[in-house]
């Protein structure tokens, strides 16, 4: 697992959602930083009580914030009459259960914080790049009155083709 570096390609163009995603990324990185500190310089893993307390606090906030974010997103989809809402809700529910059970295992004393952070990291990237990009256009159009910008899309494609 390595630090999650936020980049423009993760932006959906809906400020509040982009901020929520970035907040989740911040939490994921906090777990990474605490774990890295615990690993120390000589490679031995030494998780102190203070680290465990820090991890517990960050994990609680991360799970809470993610659930709140999913609820926010579902409300947007509902209002924009996104046709794949029920599939999305099902995926959200399964994902909530997964992170909830990992959190419960951590609270029971199992060292799953890195696993939880990495599950979230992978899920977030996948979630932003696929599902979210699909509903974002509809939300922007229906709730914010922004017309789909085909040209920008074309320009972006050209840019990424030629400059990466």
């Amino acid at each position: 697992m390595s630090r999650f570096v936020w980049s423009k390609e993760f932006e959906l163009g809906i400020d509040i959602i982009d901020h929520q995603h970035q907040r989740i990324v911040d939490y994921i990185n906090q777990i990474y930083d605490i774990s890295l500190k615990a690993q120390g310089t000589c490679g031995s893993v030494e998780v102190t009580d203070a680290d465990t307390a820090d991890l517990k606090a960050v994990l609680a906030s991360l799970v809470d914030y993610t659930l709140s974010h999913l609820a926010f997103e579902e409300a947007l989809m509902e209002e924009a009459e996104y046709p794949e809402l029920s599939e999305h809700q099902l995926v959200h529910r399964q994902f909530s259960e997964l992170i909830g059970s990992l959190k419960a295992r951590f609270d029971q004393g199992e060292e799953v914080s890195q696993r939880l952070a990495s599950v979230l990291q992978h899920w977030l990237i996948e979630h932003i790049m696929t599902e979210d990009k699909r509903y974002a256009e509809l939300v922007k159009h229906k709730l914010l009155g922004i017309e789909p910008d085909k040209h920008r899309h074309w320009v972006q494609q050209a840019l990424s083709r030629h400059f990466q």
Binding site: I16, S68, F72, A75, E79
Partner: peptide, 14 residues
């Protein structure tokens, strides 16, 4: 505000 409903949902959850 365009995200009123979503905001309300987060309030209700909390």
């Amino acid at each position: 505000y365009p995200f009123t409903k979503a905001h309300k949902k987060v309030h209700a959850l909390f």
